[in-house]
Amino acid sequence: MPLVQTATSVPVTIDDAKCIADKGCTVCVDVCPLDVLRIKELADGTKTAYMKYDECWYCMPCEADCPTGAVTVTIPYLLK
């Protein structure tokens, strides 16, 4: 029973230019109640946060607690 990848739009987006994951910041990853955010390496070798799992309560600690205002929470498309 092989698994497939199904595309889905994500409610949490990160502005890579503002994200300071490269300096070791993991605030948004730490505070998410559903633990859906992770840090990844970009093509230029710098790091940024991103939404890895589409399991969002659109509750907003990630956006509210981000020290640089890099995180934006929108309403998931199915509810919007």
Binding site: P33, L34, E55, C56, W57, C59, P76, L78, L79
Partner: peptide, 13 residues
Amino acid sequence: TSGYLFGTYENPS
């Protein structure tokens, strides 16, 4: 009703 698993009334955690 939205069908979104995590769009619950309660915190889905």
